[in-house]
Lab assay of single mutants.
Amino acid sequence: HERALMVNRLQKLTRMLRVHPDPKWKQEQQELIKRLK
């Protein structure tokens, strides 16, 4: 369940980064990718 939330968050971040590349979001995205591996 928590994994699904993280995947959701990651997808949302990816969409937001396409619109507005924010370093903070980029960092969070990298963190999520690490944790999901």
Rank of each mutant, 00 (worst) to 15 (best):
M6G: 00
H1K: 11
L17C: 03
R15A: 13
R9D: 02
K37D: 05
A4F: 09
N8R: 15
L17T: 01
W25A: 06
V7E: 08
E2F: 12
R18Q: 12
P21T: 06
K24F: 05
E2I: 12
R9C: 05
Q30Y: 11
Q29S: 05
R35D: 03
L17Q: 02
E31L: 08
K37L: 13
Q29G: 01
L13W: 00
T14G: 04
R35E: 06
E28G: 01
R35V: 09
P23F: 06
D22T: 11
K12V: 13
R15I: 12
L36S: 00
N8F: 09
P21K: 08
R35N: 08
L5S: 11
V7G: 08
P23L: 05
E28K: 01
M6E: 03
N8V: 11
V7C: 15
R9M: 07
L17A: 06
K26N: 03
I33F: 05
A4N: 09
K12F: 15
R18Y: 06
K24E: 08
E28M: 06
H1S: 13
M16F: 03
R35Q: 11
R3G: 05
L10E: 01
Q29M: 15
P23A: 08
L5A: 13
K37N: 11
E28A: 05
Q11A: 11
Q27L: 08
H1N: 13
M16P: 03
Q27N: 05
P23G: 05
E31S: 08
L10V: 04
R15Y: 05
K34S: 08
L5N: 09
R18A: 15
I33N: 03
M16S: 04
L13A: 01
K12T: 11
E2R: 06
I33Y: 06
R9H: 04
Q29F: 13
A4G: 05
L32E: 01
K37Y: 14
K26L: 09
P23S: 06
Q30D: 07
E28S: 02
I33R: 08
L36R: 02
Q29I: 10
L10K: 00
E28V: 04
K24N: 08
N8C: 02
K12D: 08
K37C: 15
K12G: 03
R3V: 13
P23E: 05
R35M: 05
R35K: 14
L32R: 00
K34C: 15
A4M: 14
P21Y: 15
K37R: 11
K26G: 03
W25T: 06
K24L: 08
T14P: 02
Q30K: 06
L32M: 02
K24I: 12
R3I: 14
L17N: 05
K12L: 14
L5Y: 09
L13V: 06
Q11N: 13
L32T: 00
V19Q: 13
V19S: 11
K34F: 12
R3S: 05
L36N: 03
L17K: 00
R35H: 07
E2Q: 10
P21R: 08
R9F: 04
R18P: 01
E31A: 07
M16N: 02
L13D: 00
Q29H: 06
P23C: 01
R9Q: 06
T14D: 09
R35G: 04
L10Y: 03
Q11L: 13
N8L: 15
E2S: 08
D22G: 03
H20M: 09
R15E: 15
L5G: 08
Q30N: 07
R9T: 04
R35Y: 06
E2C: 15
L36C: 02
K12H: 13
W25I: 15
D22L: 12
R15D: 14
A4W: 15
R35F: 12
E31N: 05
L36M: 03
K26V: 10
H20Y: 11
H1T: 14
R9W: 05
D22R: 09
